[in-house]
C-alpha cells in the first residue's frame, strides 16, 4: 500500500491540470531518522520517506498553509477521518476546497477496529479497499443501561486523572479557534485540577457537538488515558438523533446549532414545548 501511495503522489506532483497548473506540494508524513512529522513534499523530492503512520491530523497543517499562503494549491494524503475533518473545516472557512486535492487511502481492518471507526475510508478513495467498519466502543454500547450514579462514578475516576494539559484540544483538527473557551477564566477556573463540576470537559464536548468527526486523536494523545471519545461518541449520537446532523458527512450541510428550526428542524419532540424533547435513555 505505501508503495502505491508513494507512486501516485509522485505522479500527482508532476501532473498538470487542464489549465496547466500543478500542485504546489503534497502534505503527508515524512520519516527523518526515528521521527515522523508532517511535511510538504514537492516535485522531485525523495518520496521513499513518505509515511502514513502514525495517524496524524494533517488537515490542521493544510489549514495553516492555506491561511498563510493564499495562493498555494495542495494535495494531501488522507484517511477517512482526515477527509471528514476537512469537511467540517472547509465548512468553517479553515480550508479552501478550491485549493486542495484529497488523495485518500483506506485504513486497515485492524486500524478500524482500534479506532471503533464507523467509516474507515475516505470518499475520495484512491488507494486501498475499504475495510469493514469497526465495532462500537463497548462503553458507548452499554451506556444506555448505566445509571446516573454509575456514570458519575465512571467519569469521576477518569476526570480525576486530567492534568489539564490541553493535549486533547491541541491535537484536535476541529479545535481551530484563535481563543479557547477552556482557557477563559470565566468558564474554567485556572489553577485547579479536576474541579467538582467537570466544566473543562463538558465545554469541550459542547463545542464538539457539530464538529467531532471521530478521529480519536484526542484519546490517543491524552497522557492520562481518559476515554474522551466515549463523551464525544455519545454527543455525536445525540446530535444525530436530535438534529440529524453527522459531522464530516456533508460539506453543504449547515452547522445545525447556528441555523433556525426552519433550516434544521428538531427530529425529536416539539420545539414549542421543550419538555417534549426526549432525553437519551438512562439506566435505572
Amino acid at each position: 500500500m505505501i508503495d502505491e501511495i508513494r507512486k501516485i503522489v509522485a505522479e500527482r506532483l508532476n501532473e498538470t491540470d487542464d489549465k496547466g497548473a500543478r500542485l504546489d506540494g503534497m502534505v503527508a508524513l515524512r520519516r527523518t531518522g526515528p521521527a515522523v512529522a508532517p511535511h510538504v513534499f514537492v516535485a522531485g523530492d525523495d518520496l521513499s520517506t513518505l509515511e502514513i503512520n502514525p495517524r496524524y491530523p494533517l488537515m490542521t497543517v493544510v489549514s495553516r498553509l492555506h491561511k498563510r499562503l493564499p495562493d498555494i494549491r495542495l494535495g494531501v494524503v488522507a484517511r477517512g477521518c482526515d477527509e471528514r475533518a476537512y469537511v467540517e473545516m472547509a465548512k468553517r472557512n479553515q480550508i479552501d476546497p478550491e485549493r486542495l486535492v484529497i488523495l485518500g487511502f483506506a485504513c486497515t481492518a485492524e486500524e478500524a477496529l482500534e479506532c471503533y471507526c464507523a467509516e474507515p475510508f475516505p470518499k475520495n478513495l484512491v488507494v486501498g479497499t475499504p475495510a469493514a467498519p469497526g465495532p462500537q466502543n463497548p462503553i458507548v454500547a452499554k451506556y444506555d443501561t448505566m445509571t446516573l450514579a454509575e456514570r458519575r462514578a465512571f467519569w469521576k475516576q477518569q476526570f480525576v486523572k486530567c492534568i489539564k494539559c490541553y493535549g486533547c484540544r491541541n491535537i484536535c483538527p476541529e479545535c481551530f479557534c484563535e481563543a479557547c473557551a477552556m482557557e477563559d477564566k470565566a468558564w474554567v477556573e485556572p489553577g485547579f485540577l479536576a474541579p467538582p463540576f467537570p466544566a473543562f470537559h463538558l465545554i469541550r464536548a459542547m463545542h464538539m457537538a457539530s464538529r467531532c468527526i471521530a478521529c480519536r486523536q484526542c484519546e490517543h494523545t491524552c497522557p492520562a488515558h481518559i476515554p474522551l471519545t466515549v463523551l464525544y461518541d455519545l454527543m455525536r449520537r445525540d446530535m444525530e438523533a436530535l438534529l440529524g446532523y453527522v459531522p464530516g458527512a456533508d460539506l453543504a450541510a449547515l452547522p445545525p446549532l447556528s441555523v433556525t428550526l426552519e433550516q434544521t428542524p428538531l427530529l425529536l419532540g416539539d420545539a414549542h414545548d421543550p419538555a417534549t424533547i426526549p432525553l437519551a435513555p438512562i439506566g435505572r
Partner: peptide, 13 residues
Amino acid sequence: KRMPLLRNLLATV
C-alpha cells in the same frame, strides 16, 4: 437545540 444537547451531556457525566 443547544439545551437538550446539554441536558443529555449532563446525563452522560
